[in-house]
Amino acid sequence: MGAFIIRRLFWAIFLFIVATIITYVIFFVIPSDPATIACGTHCTPPIIAHIRLSLHLNLPFYQQYWLFLWNMLRHGSLGYSFVNGASVRWIIGQAAPITGSLVAGGAVCWLALSIPVGVISALRPRSILDRAGMVFVLIGISAPVVWIGLILAYIFGFKLGWTPIATYCNFFPSHQIGVCSGPANWAYHLVLPWATFMLLFAALYVRLIRANVMETMSEDFVRTARAKGASSARVLFQHVLRNSMLPVVTILGMDIGLALGGAVFTETVFNLNGLGQTLISAASQENLPVVVGVVVFATVAVIIFNFLVDVAYAWLDPRIRLST
């Protein structure tokens, strides 16, 4: 396990460096002047010159990159936004919990829906439920996330008035008047975004789980369990589920990056100022420190999540755990 972790760690550092260099290169290749952007509305050449110096834009590319790494490692600083001067760490600190809540809660929801539906369709192939599940899968796969989100917001938020239409509430209660917060409000406001994620991903996962469960059901060890006299429930829960969840865990690890991408659209529909929105704004304003900050954060988050998935996989599958 030790060697496994060390190998993972090196891979993570490598990924991190590659991701940040690519982001840097993109910004140096596109024809724009960060100093002009940072300068703001009305600007004169002396002000631009001053900003260029203070942002170290006069230095060559590799030195700027080195400064960025140094500031991050030495001071834990990701720099300051060109546009409003706020610290990138603060900006990410504001946005990350929103995207985190969205993706994590969304993942819980889509698994909570797709596991039972997938299992039931596997147990009763060609039943009404299986076919209904398949229709649902097709809708989920074909419909764009923005469309799903808008429809949900319109029907459940607006027409029926069951849920908020948009915006985010902080999980931790704050005493700010007029700004909603607290766990209940947090969950209530995220119901629709989660549902959007659920529809989007549950579709794929129902297919995946159905196929895995059906495959596992035909495994020899399941026949062994039956021959032992195990009840259907025991066969399902003790023998089929854990084995059929193994590929799901792997796919989940791969999908987390995809989910961050999906978050961009979901955040747009539901007015959530998460990382996706931050990234879009920053990219359109050519606000390099914020873009790099979000990329760094997302890379680290994906790397950590994948590491956790590997650990979970090893925990689920002793063949991996005991052979490494």
Partner: peptide, 19 residues
Amino acid sequence: HTFPNSDGEAALLQTEAGQ
């Protein structure tokens, strides 16, 4: 609340719903 990338559709529905 500021939403720099919003097209305003969500806010419009929210206004109509009184949110």
